[in-house]
Structure formats: C-alpha cells, structure tokens
Simulated scan of single mutants.
Amino acid sequence: MVMTHNALAALLARADAAIVDLDGTMVDTLGDFVQALGRMLHDLGLPPIAPAQVEHMVGKGSEHLLRSVLKHVLNQAEQAQAAIEIEAKVEALYPRAWESYQHHYLAVNGQYARTYAGVAEGLQALRRAGLPLACLTNKPTSFARPLLRAKGLDGFFDHVFGGDAFERKKPDPLPLLKTCQALGTTAARTLMIGDSSNDALAARAAGCPVVLVTYGYNHGQPVRSVDADGYLDALTDITAA
C-alpha cells in the first residue's frame, strides 16, 4: 500500500534533511540512455538494444550499465561463444565504449528526458518544511548537474553528489553516510527518497529511513517488494503531509 499521510507526516517530523535520488525518482531519463547507448553501439559496429532491456540495467552507475549493454548485445550476436570469451570482449571494448558513451550522453543530456509529475511541488514542500536537500545519484556528477539545471531542479539542492563523488556507489551505505556529513545531519534523521532496491539497501545499511516512489525503474522488479518505510505514487504526496 502507498503510505498514509499520517505515516509520511510522522517520517517528515523526525527528519532534519532529505536525500533524493535522480534517475527514476525525479527524472525519467530512459530516453537519454537509449539515445546515447544506441549511438555508442553504432560507433562500435554493434547491433542496437531495445529500450525495455536498457530500463532493467539502469541504476547501478554508468560503468555497470555499459558493461551490461555490451554483454547483452555480444551475447545476442555471438551466442555460440563461451561466457568467458564474451567477458573478455566486453573488457576489450569498454574503453572505446566509455569514451563514445560520454560524448553522446553529454550531447543529449536532458533532451529525451522528462521530469515526473509532482517532483517540483514535492521538493518545494520539503524546502518549506525547512529540510536541507541533497541529490545523491549513481549517475556521474558531470551528467547529473547539467540534467538538474536543464530541468530547473538544481536550485532545490544544497549538495549534488554523483556516483563518482565517493569511493563506492549505492547500494553501499558510504555515499549516504558521506552525504549526511555534508548536510550536517545524522543518518537516523535523514530521509532517503528513491525508486529502487539500490536506494533502500543503502538507506537500511546507513540507518536512514527510506521511502520509494512507485513509478521508477528498480531493475524490472516490483518496487513494493523492496523493504522500505513507505511508497509514494508521486512526490506531491509530500505536500499533503
């Protein structure tokens, strides 16, 4: 069930700050990923990949995304090859793939993406409640900051940390703990708002309360199957609380 207004209000009352994920939580970036990956695969002379496949690979950082895409298309093209040979080809192609992907992603960043309904209103409500906000994403910082600016969301955040900001990425708790330090809050009083098991696992390990939106990616799995303190159909649920 989506959490009640009273339950959400109780969580907010105990929070001194909030950390908000980006892809799948604030902005639907699947179109950007599909465009950049398609152009990268063309550069490498590889076949395209379906958007539905890309959607299930998003969320664990660009490095993981590229390796997953390369492995998928090579498996499809060279089914007779052993897994170890495919892995070796992925690693051999990875440097060129990364350079091409960075070039194309920066060129399309935000052009094929849309802000989810209710995001700006939800962030405004959090700010009106006096909560400092940080955006914490596994997307590289050089991609995240321009995207937030392009969608008019950058002004809500005191800090923006990408997947390259710390030694490890979500679902490791380190990024959340470091973000809490930057916000000047304790984990127990910092609310994590995300869309996937990555966010929930990191929050649980860090000791942060966590709520998940129901419309994000979550690697193709039902988000309500993830252990969280609640679920939101839209960030506008925060305005009611």
Rank of each mutant, 00 (worst) to 15 (best):
K60I: 02
L74C: 13
L41N: 08
A125W: 02
D21Q: 03
H56T: 11
K71S: 15
A113K: 00
A120P: 11
A15K: 05
D32S: 12
V54A: 09
I86S: 09
Q79R: 13
Y112K: 11
A15T: 07
A36Q: 13
A107C: 11
V27D: 00
H72C: 12
V54E: 06
N109Q: 12
G110H: 00
M57T: 04
A80T: 11
I86N: 04
L46E: 09
D23I: 01
R67K: 15
P48C: 06
V108Q: 13
Q124N: 09
N6Y: 13
P51K: 03
V54M: 11
V20W: 02
E63Q: 11
T115N: 09
Q35D: 12
G110P: 02
L123Q: 01
T25H: 04
G31D: 01
V20R: 00
E121G: 08
Y112E: 07
L106T: 11
K71M: 02
A97C: 13
V34E: 09
A97Y: 04
E121P: 10
H5S: 14
W98C: 13
G110V: 04
A88E: 12
D43R: 08
G31H: 11
A52V: 07
L30S: 05
V119H: 07
A88P: 04
L66M: 11
E78D: 14
A50L: 05
D16P: 05
R67A: 07
V34S: 14
A10S: 15
A36R: 11
A120N: 11
V90D: 12
N75L: 14
A83L: 03
H42F: 11
A7M: 09
L65D: 13
V119Q: 03
L11H: 11
P95S: 14
H64M: 14
L65A: 12
A83G: 06
A82T: 10
P47L: 05
A17L: 12
E121T: 00
A50I: 01
L12V: 03
T29G: 03
Q35R: 10
G31K: 05
I19V: 07
Y116W: 02
L123R: 02
A83P: 01
E87T: 14
V73F: 01
L44D: 03
L46D: 07
A18Q: 00
A82H: 13
V20N: 03
G59V: 00
V27Q: 00
T25L: 03
I49C: 06
S62Q: 10
H42M: 06
E63K: 07
N75F: 00
S100Q: 04
V34Q: 07
V27W: 02
F33R: 14
V73N: 01
G31C: 01
A36K: 03
D28F: 07
